[in-house]
Amino acid sequence: MWREQIRPALMIFIVLTVITGVIYPLVVTGVSQVFFHKQANGSLVYSSEGIVIGSTLIGQNFDDPKYFWGRLSATTPVYNAAASSGSNLGPSNPALVDAVKVRIAALKAVDAGNQAPVPVDLVTASASGLDPHLSLAGVYYQLARIARVRNMSEVIIRQVIDQNTSGRFLGLVGEPVVNVLKVNLALDRLKI
């Protein structure tokens, strides 16, 4: 009973491997590279000299007071885009509480006068460790600090934030977020 199935099994396996493992990915690659070249190659960002300085979809670590800070990252080292990972800390784990405490202290250290409660996504680690975004609340919390350190008006910074905010899909699905890397690059371009 099993012998007559060996040849079909081997042959079907080979044919389906070629179709789904070679032809299918090559077709998708061809279409993507021709029509969506930028996205298909990782949405990379180039400096004015033409060197790669990041990807709009991959977060970078910022802890200089003149930059907006993003989500915490649980990768080693932080924002390691070759080994994505979340913290996987459970909600009752004391290590989670400690990580949040350290982050709050770091934020207060560069912005002692800020008495507002810290928005949750600014003190928690993202699922990928590479989250390029932050909620509007997380960005507005840092607004006064950025304005002071950069000696810029809050009105102008708000404009930069608005330009780098993406809303919900159709106004309904997902969450409105600010791209931290893009907003920081835009600020650098405005004034060094």
Binding site: R71, P91, V120, T124, A127, H133, S166, G174, E175, V177
Partner: peptide, 15 residues
């Protein structure tokens, strides 16, 4: 301005 809630291990764009 924010989804709030338990954001540890979640991505900002998904909330």
């Amino acid at each position: 301005f924010q989804p709030g809630g338990n954001m540890e291990g979640k991505e900002a764009r998904f909330g």
